[in-house]
Amino acid sequence: MVVECQGLSKHFGRTVALNNLTFSIKKNAITGLVGANGAGKTTLLKILAGYLRKTAGEVRVFGERPFNSLKVAANTIFIDDNLALPATLSIAEILEAGRLFYPGWDHGLARRLFDYFSFNPRQLHKNLSKGKRSTFNMILGLSARSVLTIFDEPTVGMDAAVRKDFYRALLQDYLQHPRTIIISSHLLKEIEDILEEILLLREGQKRLQLSASALREYALGLRGEEALVKRFIAGREVYRREHFGKNSLFVVLRNSFSAAERHKARAAGLEIMAVSAEDLCVYLTSKGGRGIDDVFNRN
């Protein structure tokens, strides 16, 4: 395990950003950190990278407390939208600096990506557009080949083509040089395929951690006549509930029905549907299972 947290909490004044988190992250796996805005993703990643100090609990990265740890700093790269890079250096000079700074740096890869994305070597980092800046930061993140590579919302501002290229490049480089990678995103759909593990946060707490390949089977949707649906789901935790039509109900819940129960449900006239990973994540990470329709339903 590269990362281990036990009861980890972080407070900012009265605000609880992380609340009693316990989880670990596997070595040489790509883990996706998913949650709504404000769920605590960035705070968690900054604690792991050693940028922030925890308030309570335990956190270990490479077996050490990351805050003020030389070992963690030397083996970790943290890429986000607010990378503090020297304002006077051109982006070509920043790549040169990366070569000196990161022991695993692959300058050939850095140059090839730099050319592929048609960067002007003389440009200053602060003058890059939002999308170009994210793309450049991604080049730093991949070329550094850090043992622990953290991307916090890496595709902000990138267009669809560059986003695709980024995830392809990430996977290709990972296949050739396996390492521990953590990516946060609220767009699960675009990272789902390349993930091995998923950690879902909701309001600073762990909602779920599971293998990415299991996510699509984790839940199912049931739709049908309200009374019938209700009878079927009695005593089970419902992640999402939507009314529509004349007394019809759609619910999403844990896929824990036996084949016999499923057959019975179908025979009774209920529709059983797969729930996409992305939809499930939205349901699991929304506050108290509420949806936007609840704002408009005042009856």
């Binding site: 995830y167 392809r168 996977l171 290709q172 296949l175 395929d193 390349i194 993930l195 091995e196 990415a212």
Partner: peptide
């Protein structure tokens, strides 16, 4: 994994 752009564990 390379052909389909998926995680090798999958």
């Amino acid at each position: 994994a390379e052909m389909f752009n998926i995680n090798p564990a999958t």
